[in-house]
Simulated assay, not measured.
Amino acid sequence: MKPILFKIAKIEEEAVRILQEDYPYFYDNLHYHVETQIMVIIEGEGTYFIGDAIGHFKTGDIFILGSNLPHFFRSDKSYYEDNTNLRSKNISILFSFDALGEKLLGLPEFHGIKKLLQFSKRGLLVEGKSKEALYHSAEKIAQKSGLDRILYLLKLLDKLSKSTELTALSHINFEPGSLPQDTTKVNMVINFIMENFSQDISLADAAGVANLSINAFCRYFKQHTRKTFSQFLNEIRIGHACKQLIEEEFSVKEIAFDSGYFNISYFNRQFKQITGYTPSDYVKTHTQKHNKAS
């Protein structure tokens, strides 16, 4: 998937930049930037694509997105509807310590932070008490400026580097040299999939959206997403099914149909392959985790 090189406005003038965004839906084009980003979801839910990982995000989630890591956050369909009061809000902390120099980052006191920043290139989900602390810290750092903001961030990163509540999402790192600029076609295909995954869409349909032959499209899609078209589509569909299993009182058959599966046996096989659980076991496991957290 060819992500956009996204240049953060005025980041060159600040070592640490705070973005507080409030829109109908999140920026949903695949992109990347040289800055590391800590993204706090204040309000909203939908599907994320981070590196090669696909999942569901919701209010309160926090992600650490490393330098040059391709990603997008696409709000659920309801956020795109007319006359809706739904909002998508986040606080993002964007920073690059390149200007500080290798000597400073090479000091023993920075080893933990340097290791964390390398780890973040796989995209991190912050959980547990670390998430709660980081949520409040994001609100505080937005009120600081200049050197105070930099020092506050360094202390925050030092604490995170010691946390055991960071989960890597992507299986691979992405290097700048392997990240092309052109994203028009792939974002057209992503939009097509997200808008039509509940329908019976085919490889030929997707290739037509990209205006490529089927063979050329398969190479193109696999090269830039590290997934085949069917893998990507199934993960989007199963992610939707997981959300419905937890939040909606529908039968497994109804959820399978709504997720684009018209063969219940095939749905069950895909669900087990992607999540590691049967639909019923997935619900039980989620309920147990929720009860423990409460």
Score class of each variant (00 low, 15 high):
96 S>L: 11
271 F>M: 05
266 Y>G: 00
153 L>G: 04
241 A>Q: 05
271 F>E: 08
166 L>K: 09
210 A>R: 03
31 H>S: 03
204 A>R: 13
175 E>D: 08
169 L>W: 01
129 K>E: 14
41 I>L: 08
86 L>E: 14
286 H>G: 05
265 S>V: 10
268 N>R: 13
44 G>T: 11
76 D>T: 10
124 L>W: 00
91 I>C: 09
288 Q>M: 15
39 M>N: 06
64 I>P: 00
237 R>L: 04
227 K>W: 00
218 C>H: 02
218 C>E: 13
284 K>D: 13
109 E>N: 08
148 D>Q: 12
250 F>R: 13
142 A>Y: 07
109 E>C: 06
60 G>S: 10
154 L>S: 03
26 F>H: 14
236 I>S: 03
81 E>W: 05
126 V>L: 08
143 Q>L: 15
82 D>M: 11
210 A>F: 09
172 I>D: 05
187 N>S: 13
245 L>T: 03
258 D>P: 00
179 L>A: 09
146 G>H: 07
24 P>Y: 02
18 I>H: 13
180 P>A: 07
36 T>F: 04
58 K>L: 05
189 V>Q: 11
127 E>P: 01
217 F>A: 06
281 D>E: 14
83 N>Q: 07
51 G>Q: 02
32 Y>S: 04
2 K>R: 11
186 V>F: 13
196 N>K: 14
184 T>M: 02
227 K>S: 03
229 F>P: 04
185 K>T: 10
119 F>D: 10
170 S>Y: 04
52 D>G: 00
95 F>T: 10
97 F>G: 07
276 G>D: 11
193 I>A: 02
243 K>L: 08
200 D>H: 14
293 A>I: 12
18 I>L: 14
262 F>G: 09
44 G>I: 09
111 H>A: 14
20 Q>S: 15
